[in-house]
Design a protein around this nucleic acid. Structure first.
Lengths: 274, 274
DNA sequence: CGCGCTGTTGACTTAACTCAATAGTAGTGG
DNA sequence: CCACTACTATTGAGTTAAGTCAACAGCGCG
């Protein structure tokens, strides 16, 4: 028994936490909650947990009780196939809500693992369902969050089903860039945090292909890359290589629609439905 | 101006429809609604629409107001990329709910098109949200339905990211077989309804590849195929070729998990969460 | 009947995979 | 501190599954 696991699995007892006076409130919860509604949030037994790099937030097959809001850090979710191979199905950053795939069956489908030291809030889903009944704006927020996940998945399906390796990696880099930028980090200096194999697993490519594409991007002055540190040199050109030039003979477009990997962002644009 | 469009777009004015006494009630709505709850359903302005083969249920980019429950028929959803290529992102049968990807942005991301004469119920989402506040079992049903969609999408991502052509087609056939069987149709005689190109689009393959794989399956006595009619001769073997034999050297599995395309089924297993 | 659409099949090309050798990095322990 | 091992990344050479291009066959429909 060595100390490694103590680092991975936070032994600290989880903190009882009220959303109403949480520092992350602004970007974690829907804006415009009144005082009365904010008070209803106190009924939620939200617990904050710190998870070290490599530590797991939940494991595939275990019973589902809570969604997890990521307060800080970077999390991957992975699924393990029958034959033992692991595939990365999602990458998640602060402000995102994970675990929604588990609502239906009552057990998590994925492993969620921190790729850097992270903190997450466990939100008991049963309680959340109750509270949303009394806070329509929160109810809508939940529905939109789930909807956004679905829409995002369609984007990934498009990527996996019809893009070539270079495009996939370009989309991946641009997506990371956007998401970091949205959180106030540099849009051009990004830390991959994932190994080549994990990137490949996420993009449906082999690790050698990922490595080669990154090298080629560097040759072409699109980026500089050293291990997990990437500096984007030409974001424009990187952006342009997404969606176009699959093959040469294309008919005119009918209803243009940009497929993005841009992930579940915390900020939600205004909308309405009847 | 010819008559084709009259066939495609049903000119019949939609029917006002109450869920409480709908013939499809049993498999469309959650079981166990009390009389009082059933009465609340009357507040929903559900309209039934008949859509001919080739007709569209909603179009990408138009404003989102309603989810659509499929009462009968077979529906594809497609997305059109910037460059004009179309990709099939979903296939839907009776009892399934479509349009959930639109909740977030307020406009549909996909085109939903009937592949055979179909009937659908338009459920105004704003009203649905209201009603679910008073009917917890319905609320949970909605959440589970969205969750099931997310989980299903993960399965598709696995398929597109890591399966070879033969496996993809096998998964496709097995999935159709299961879904038809669940609805009381034959599990072995299935009508594809899709052209080779559409199957390929759904599976991330070219139409020629789909055609070749089907021919090979026929050579190997797995199926007989003629145009869009497929008879499954060896469902067992078809099932076994899913998930295994990607390549030869595999480590032992850790947390087996079967990736399925088996779609959003109307029946929901019992579960609980705190 | 002839036209257009859909599907099949063959020959060839290619993007990505596989295998393998090597180099760089990080972590471990003496 | 450095040597040692693990792991991770890069790169090259050869292979292959799927894509591309093209010819043709079958079917349905006006």
């Amino acid at each position: 028994m060595n100390t490694v696991h103590l680092v991975h699995e936070s032994p600290v007892s989880p903190l009882r936490h009220t959303c109403a006076d949480c520092a992350s409130h602004d970007w974690c919860l829907p804006a415009g909650l009144g005082a009365k509604q904010a008070k209803l949030l106190d009924h939620l037994n939200v617990h904050t947990r710190f998870v070290g790099r490599g530590g797991s937030i939940y494991r595939s097959g275990t019973a589902f009780h809570s969604l997890y809001a990521i307060r800080s850090g970077f999390v991957k979710s992975t699924m393990t196939l029958d034959d033992g191979r692991e595939r990365v199905t999602g990458l998640h950053m602060s402000g995102e809500l994970i675990g929604m795939d588990a609502i239906n069956t009552g057990q998590y489908m994925c492993d969620a693992v921190a790729l850097e030291d992270s903190s997450v809030c466990a939100i008991p889903f049963g309680e959340l369902e109750c509270v949303t009944r009394d806070i329509p704006v929160l109810q809508r927020y939940l529905h939109r969050t789930m909807s956004r996940e679905i829409a995002h998945d369609y984007g990934v399906m498009l990527l996996l089903g019809s893009m070539r390796a270079e495009e996939r990696v370009a989309v991946f880099l641009v997506s990371l860039s956007k998401r970091y930028a949205a959180r106030g980090y540099s849009a051009t200096r990004i830390n991959l945090l994932l190994k080549r194999e994990e990137i490949g697993s996420y993009l449906g490519l082999k690790l050698e292909t990922v490595s080669r594409v990154l090298s080629r991007f560097q040759e072409n002055q699109l980026i500089t890359v050293q291990h997990k540190d990437v500096e984007i040199k030409d974001l424009d050109r990187l952006n342009r290589m997404v969606g176009n030039h699959h093959n040469v003979h294309q008919r005119a477009s009918r209803q243009p629609l940009r497929a993005t990997l841009a992930a579940p962002a915390p900020v939600q644009p205004a909308m309405q439905y009847t």
